[in-house]
């Protein structure tokens, strides 16, 4: 049996569909109700917030090899900044910006590290936040994605595989490059080479002498430094001693760079699972998390 009924014609919707909304990351056109950019899979909420609040957030990224600790670093940074008020303060813009913090803090409180970030860009966590500091009157709006290390490596080896990474790093105002101290300490130099590859990729992306990557700030963070106290004592000396190639590369290619040490876990053990050994933290005592970010923000203000 066929029922008759009236369907309201939402003509205004047709009008809205005819206007393309550019993605904040890749600037590709999207329909107004798209959740993710159809070109690069970045969340369209970033563009909508920028348009509605008439702001132009700056983009920074935490980059580094897979398993270096990007998710833990960003999640912990957000949690610390949202809990303390004497130094920098971070205010999340949009509910989606709290997801990364929530996932990280919940896992660490259970003595686990958060799951590995998937390679698919549509499953990445993005953070849009406003950062205030007592020393500066004007707040800074920031966009920080939690990138997958394997996707980064894939994009470097095969450019244009991940358009979102290329667009994002082109627009980035600065980066925090994470290097695994545990691997460096054990004499494995993969981290060193990967970091140099990434830095070379950045220079190739934009080599303009005035506003290219050579002029943008790069914070080099030795992650998991809790396993190596000497790294905390003097990160620069540690870089010279254990990562000489990276140290030399930065000196030659970048004008604004600084070495830091950071750690979240006080000690680690391994949980034996059917799929293999998984590293678990024995206690959480963050060190050196804020300093690289604080330095980067100060550099961006300049």
């Amino acid at each position: 049996m066929i029922k008759e009924g009236s369907v309201q014609l939402d003509s205004y919707r047709l009008a809205q569909y005819s206007v393309q909304v550019p993605c904040y990351i890749c600037e590709g056109g999207n329909s107004f109700d798209a959740e993710l950019c159809r070109h690069c899979f970045a969340p369209m909420a970033l563009a909508h917030q920028a348009n509605s609040q008439k702001i132009a957030p700056r983009i920074i990224a935490a980059i580094g090899a897979s398993g270096v600790g990007k998710t833990v670093y960003l999640g912990m940074l957000m949690d610390i900044l949202s809990r303390q008020s004497d130094r920098l303060q971070m205010l999340a813009r949009g509910a989606f910006s709290i997801t990364l913090q929530q996932i990280t803090a919940s896992a660490l409180a259970r003595n686990e590290f958060p799951h590995k970030t998937p390679n698919e860009p549509d499953r990445w966590n993005w953070v849009h936040s406003q950062v205030r500091s007592p020393a500066h009157r004007r707040p800074v709006d920031l966009i920080m994605p939690d990138l997958a290390g394997e996707a980064l490596l894939e994009e470097i080896d095969h450019p244009h595989t991940y358009p979102v990474i290329r667009s994002l790093l082109s627009k980035c105002a600065g980066v925090l490059m994470l290097v695994d101290t545990v691997k460096l300490q054990s004499g494995i130099h993969d981290q060193d080479y990967f970091a140099m590859k990434l830095l070379t990729y950045l220079i190739e992306l934009d080599n303009h002498p005035k506003h290219g990557w050579s002029q943008r700030p790069v914070g080099l963070v030795f992650s998991k430094a809790d396993e190596c106290e000497e790294c905390f004592d003097d990160p620069v000396a540690y870089a010279k001693a254990h990562s000489a190639g990276l140290w030399q590369h930065c000196n030659e290619q970048f004008k604004r760079f600084q070495f830091f040490a950071a750690g979240v876990a006080g000690g680690c053990a391994y949980r034996n699972l059917p799929e293999g050994r998984v590293r678990v933290p024995l206690r959480i005592e963050p060190r050196g998390i804020i300093e690289p970010f604080e330095w980067l923000i100060d550099e961006l203000r300049e």
């Binding site: 259970r110 003595n111 000690g267 680690c268 053990a269 391994y270 949980r271 034996n272 699972l273 050994r277 678990v280 024995l282």
Partner: peptide
């Protein structure tokens, strides 16, 4: 000392 499952330590603690 930890919840749930089989753990191993990188060195005696």
């Amino acid at each position: 000392a930890l919840h749930g499952g089989d753990f191993s330590l990188p060195s005696p603690m």
